[in-house]
């Protein structure tokens, strides 16, 4: 099992260069069964990462480019009248895939955003009165530009909460960038990739991940972290129980990816920024993006032994 994971990480690493930590985080998110939000400037490899993930995990993949004139029907699908049968037939939209890349999600209007986000939460869609199940597994990887860019509709807190993790890719280091510039086009490289994980393996990975041991001491640590966000004045509001559960399940998966059967505080610390940054707001700047500073503060203020 461990080999599969390592192989997956290396495989993705050949396409997305020098971003092992982010790859592991993304993988953690998907194995934990959550949706992933990648936030970064254009051209940082967001799309490449998600395409690679889909390919390597052997999932059916579709990409929805969000624009300001995108309509819910463009995501969910539409019934069309057919002359031959004289009936309406449903044409499923791009959402009926195992892995959806919702590109630049904050460019679309709130109406279209919520069509996707509802599907994410329910894992089913209701179109024209008929409820249709989405394929399983169902992952959404959304990318967004930082909200400060022009022409965006920032996601509200309630919808950000639907994403298990939010990660940032960041600029590559010079060595990786050089390889990138010397090497072949990523798109060609992507086509050559083999899928390593099949559906049953993915299920197995998920259930293995859930079996990782969490000791009382570690639960205390997680509870102290959560309590700190609720009590300290610099936090506009604390983490929800859903946030606490997210921390725990990601930490378990991280430990599992690391090849352990128990969670140590370092696991929690590794995934904590990704899990909590988009769920926290500063008291002083409730509209802003103080999440990452708050996450750092959380890590330095709460000790592992308390």
């Amino acid at each position: 099992m461990q080999d599969v994971i390592q192989k997956t990480i290396t495989q993705i690493g050949t396409v997305v260069l020098g971003k092992e930590h982010q790859i592991k985080l993304a993988l953690t998110c998907l194995i934990s069964g959550g949706h992933l939000l990648i936030e970064d400037l254009p051209g940082m490899g967001k799309t490449t990462l998600s395409q690679t993930l889909a390919k390597v995990l052997g999932l059916s993949f579709n990409r929805i480019q969000f624009t300001s004139d995108l309509l819910p029907a463009d995501i969910l699908g539409i019934s069309v009248f057919e002359k031959e049968t004289s009936r309406f037939t449903f044409h499923p939209g791009p959402i009926f895939n195992q892995l959806i890349l919702a590109d630049e999600i904050n460019r679309a209007t709130p109406k279209s955003q919520s069509a996707l986000l509802e599907a994410m939460e329910e894992r089913q869609v209701t179109i024209e009165g008929e409820t249709r199940k989405l394929p399983s597994p169902f992952f959404v990887i959304a990318t967004q530009n930082p909200n400060s860019q022009a022409g965006t509709f920032p996601l509200p807190e309630s919808q950000l909460d639907r994403f298990l993790m939010r990660i940032q890719l960041g600029y590559p280091d010079p060595a990786s960038e050089r390889i990138l510039m010397k090497g072949v086009d990523r798109r060609i490289l992507l086509k050559k990739l083999d899928s390593i994980v099949d559906l049953s393996t993915l299920n197995e990975l998920q259930s293995e991940g859930r079996r990782v041991k969490v000791s009382d001491s570690l639960l205390d640590y997680v509870q102290r972290l959560v309590a700190y966000t609720r009590g300290a004045p610099e936090f506009a509001y604390g983490l929800s129980p859903r946030g606490a559960l997210a921390l725990l399940s990601c930490a378990k998966t991280w430990a599992f990816i690391d090849g352990r059967t128990h969670v140590v505080p370092e696991d929690v610390q590794a995934i904590l920024p990704g899990v909590v940054e988009h769920r926290l707001r500063e008291t002083a700047d409730i509209q802003g993006h103080g999440g990452s500073a708050l996450a750092q503060r959380l890590l330095s203020q709460v000790d592992i032994i308390g």
């Binding site: 140590v264 610390q269 890590l299 203020q301 592992i304």
Partner: peptide, 8 residues
């Protein structure tokens, strides 16, 4: 450090 894990 405050908050530093044992392995780190």
């Amino acid at each position: 450090h405050h908050g530093e894990g044992p392995n780190d």
